[in-house]
Design a protein around this nucleic acid. Structure first.
Lengths: 217, 217
DNA sequence: GAATAATGGATAGTAGTGCTGTCTGCTTTC
DNA sequence: GAAAGCAGACAGCACTACTATCCATTATTC
């Protein structure tokens, strides 16, 4: 098919497709003449993947590029891909200004991981992100938030199991690679949405009559 | 204190503070003369909150404004605040192009909520976001993702409980209001970070020798 | 009390992101 | 052979989140 049909079938404007081609997020079509190209179903799929990562996952274009480059690499190393995808979603850690607090918080995170028996490389970005969150909460006077994070951690264990199950189910390396991407990026959005719904449901359960918690009358 | 000290103590540049004042995210200081103002600890706190929402929570300035407006309103209605905060983090649902698939997915989400016995207003944004995620996964050929979402849902129930516990612990309406904000926004980031760490840990547990899943030799 | 620095307020400018529009010279289709 | 579509290059644009400059005051310091 030509670019017009690609556009119609995906709902992505032609100039946008050209932009993605320029950026290398979409492989070039097969040439039929010096200035004509033909696209196929793989382009449709890729385009949908790009849109999903941008629209649903909220990734910036640069991160999408990064992730797709890794997906396209011939390596079947799940851990490497997992690492790249994981790196892609953290917005270049803002590492809080207070270096001491940050270091202390990272110690706390390490301790938490040890408690749980979680293996983790020292420099995983999620580690410092989590530490930064704790520092933020602390400087805002919400030091009790650490306890909630502890509860989150034990709950997250189940999420990790579900995630790895989802990946392991797939046949073939290609399918697995994409499952890592889809599961991780779309999974984030799904989880956050479910958290919202769970909060509302739990809130309704606790305070049935639109009353606020400290007004039990 | 004057604006320079406010800047020094928070690490936020003076022009940025002025910008936040203009935008109404930071209340004006107390006037000491027609063109001088004095700031206090509440300004420091507010400024830290703003930076936390932007840097750690990843909220755009407009959303921060929305959230803070609600926090500042005298209403003690937790559900209303919860709603506003929840709305703030979803980037104006991109509602997938395929209207039919979207509707079908929303039906599935409704069914899931019924199964779980979750109360939810029909128009909660998280509902359509979740449906959009499912449509995306489906059009990418990952229809099996629905099962993972089901697992996420039961897990999310525990998250909701932890979240409401965190809020209920607070004394006074003001504290509760801020706890909703901090818990929800920083909580999102914390959860995602923990999910990453859990994935790595689970991956390491399953595939100890850096081998990929389909290569058990 | 004069020089220097900082402040509030207004306005303009800037860097980055994610497209979108326009043009030219082909190619395809009718 | 006329109209439409296409590839590729490049310019432009809307939006976001600041940042810089200016000016008339006010504060501080010597």
């Amino acid at each position: 098919m030509r670019i017009g049909e690609l556009s119609k079938r995906t709902g992505v404007a032609v100039p946008t497709i050209k932009y993605y081609l320029r950026e290398g997020m979409l492989p070039p079509g097969e040439r039929t003449s010096p200035n004509q190209a033909r696209y196929d179903e793989t382009h449709i799929h890729r385009l949908r993947l790009v849109r999903a990562l941008i629209d649903v996952g909220g990734l910036p274009v640069a991160k999408v590029k990064e992730v797709l480059t890794t997906v396209d690499s011939p390596s079947g190393d799940i851990e490497k891909l997992l690492g790249t995808v994981q790196r892609a979603v953290f917005p270049a850690l803002p590492t809080s200004a207070e270096v001491e607090m940050q270091a202390a918080a990272e110690q706390e995170v390490h301790a938490l991981l040890d408690e749980l028996g979680w293996y983790c490389r020292d420099n995983h970005p999620a580690l410092s992100v989590l530490a930064t969150v704790l520092v933020s909460a602390q400087t805002l006077g919400h030091s009790g938030f650490l306890d909630t994070v502890r509860r989150y951690a034990t709950i997250s264990e189940q999420i990790g199991v579900a995630d790895l199950d989802y990946i392991a189910d797939k046949r073939g390396v290609d399918g697995m690679l994409e499952s890592v991407v889809v599961g991780t990026i779309l999974g984030d959005t799904a989880l956050i949405a479910l958290r919202r719904l769970a909060q509302v449901a739990e809130s309704a359960k606790r305070y049935p009559d639109r009353r606020r918690p400290d007004d039990p009358a």
